[in-house]
Design a binder for these strands. Sequence first.
DNA 1: TACGCCAGTGAATCACACC
DNA 2: TGGTGTGATTCACTGGCGT
Lengths: 377, 377
Amino acid sequence: MSVKRKGAPATAPHQNPEPAWLDQILLGDCVAELEKLPSASVDVVFADPPYNLQLEGALHRPDQSKVDAVDDAWDQFESFAAYDAFTRAWLMACRRVLKPSGTLWVIGSYHNIFRVGTVLQDLGFWVLNDVVWLKSNPMPNFRGKRFTNAHETMIWASRDRKAKSYTFNYEALKAFNDDLQMRSDWTLPLCTGGERLKDGNGQKVHPTQKPEALLYRVLLSSTNPGDVVLDPFFGTGTTGAVAKRLGRHFVGVERDRAYADAAMSRIDAVEPAPDMALETTKGKRAQPRIPFGRLLEAGLIAPGTELTCAKGRNTAVVRADGSLETGGVTGSIHKIGAHVQGLDACNGWTYWHFAEGKARRPIDDLRQVIRDGMAAA
Amino acid sequence: MSVKRKGAPATAPHQNPEPAWLDQILLGDCVAELEKLPSASVDVVFADPPYNLQLEGALHRPDQSKVDAVDDAWDQFESFAAYDAFTRAWLMACRRVLKPSGTLWVIGSYHNIFRVGTVLQDLGFWVLNDVVWLKSNPMPNFRGKRFTNAHETMIWASRDRKAKSYTFNYEALKAFNDDLQMRSDWTLPLCTGGERLKDGNGQKVHPTQKPEALLYRVLLSSTNPGDVVLDPFFGTGTTGAVAKRLGRHFVGVERDRAYADAAMSRIDAVEPAPDMALETTKGKRAQPRIPFGRLLEAGLIAPGTELTCAKGRNTAVVRADGSLETGGVTGSIHKIGAHVQGLDACNGWTYWHFAEGKARRPIDDLRQVIRDGMAAA
DNA sequence: TACGCCAGTGAATCACACC
DNA sequence: TGGTGTGATTCACTGGCGT
């Protein structure tokens, strides 16, 4: 059973006819549906499996609004063992349909990615890279109990350790990345705004829709035009939409008919236009911010150092966490700079100075040392 | 057997004597050595285990110079199963010596981190975050067959799922990061230059020496001054050096005497930061609790006073016992604050305001008056 | 039309002391 | 041990509405 696409391109009579499952969504359990495909028939797998989040109570923002948690039934597993068994089953099914030179991508978070990586290695896949998706606009940590969970991890692996010449479009990626080798960290925003599929009530159709820019990089790097990309957890079809846009074929498997229907109409609306898309997806690696604490880590300022204003009139002492202390008041370089001047705001980088011999230099000079070091590398 | 440190601070006679293993390097296999430590004796573990790299043949740069790969004997394992058994053994040993409220950090790359993460979850550790170290100056990929491997992954986990109040210096990290909460991606350079330990021939002493900046952030976030940090793969002692600098105790285990010797002289040369500079920013949670009734006792609020929300729309009257009354309903400042807004919860301290002239100020300001008085006394 | 303000929201394993 | 009550806690971005 499958969801048929409309307006599938006609196959020219002199070519091999395309298999019936191409550019389709197979409706059903992914392991069962994959059995219907011939072995060694797809070039790349991209999989976004359930993460097995283990949430307890509801979480509220500081303003008391409720966080819309991912509590769908498809994300519930009884135990790590059950999750491992599930993972093993779908990875084995994917391995069978992958061509020997094929590669596989899986995305996950710390809840599940270690399990997936271990199973995948045990099955004989060979990890080529792990790639981290750095979210430029992640949800904050509302209770102040952990670091902001600001990234997800993708594993990129070949089918076998001795895989024959898997596809990696090194030069294309380098050109894409302003003539620098593409790194294993990709900074991209979440899928929001007009790209996010909404239902008639304005509610999101799928709780974990991935941004097209992510799939764009994945497919650009590891597939060629005309390749077949399998997504065993198709959801609302981001993989299919980007595949079509880039002139790749897709096969999706999805259990939920509502997701599959949304995916199919979404993909039908896609215009293949790779050249234009390249422009919109391309982005420089965001220049990392350098917080004041970085100067302490780098040993450029030691805890206990006294900073002064340019004239030496106001002073403050640097603490290990990068906060300043003066007259019993503590805060960031900016807050304390404002405080000692009786102002609302202050640029601490230019206000505070450190002693160098008899001279005083702004701490901004030290930040420049860090930036120069990063640029030189 | 251990490597003794020089100039260990004398323990004052009236204090509990420090255990003999504190601020020492235990020379030997980490599982065997850890058996000598009492259980529940360390606050945090930082582990940089062997990576299980499986390199075949030598890797050459485009100019044919040989890359100095990590191919030391200690980094070779026969199989994933052997690596998993090794991982299980040292993680179990660490778990025994960890305090119930302790946390553990492990750093690794895609070669081993999935194995480590899985074993750690299976042993009952509870992952709090995975943190990626983004290398600002990674080694390029010379063959052009993969993405530049530009990051490593750290797992931060509590000893148990229901761990009691593990240490996370949220406010300190926020101050460190220019008043934004710290994210799970940290951009830091590799350990190079003067920080990198070299032997008499200018060769690096250890192949995978970690930058002190990385440990600075780890220890600042998850330990307090005086805590004990265990590093079961001590190497050249980055963990010990930063621990000493930040006023934390360390225990190291290292199998290789050359590494241990290099570590000990390195640590002896470290100058600890002054105690005063080790004080870090604390949030309201660290402040003593003041019940609302205390404001009435202190005469800062009189019974019968009318409180309002910030905009003056909702009102309530203070009763002599510190409860509020509005529309016939009575309860605590929090309960009534929630009630008038139709919410489940509310922080009454910030919700309710008192009149001062024409302005309204939150009752939290009055609480601060009491706290300031306590601090002055 | 431009701009400012306010409300809404995103894969989240998000208290703890006290009785 | 569990139940109860206090009260701590958010970043980047989008979209709608009002001036």
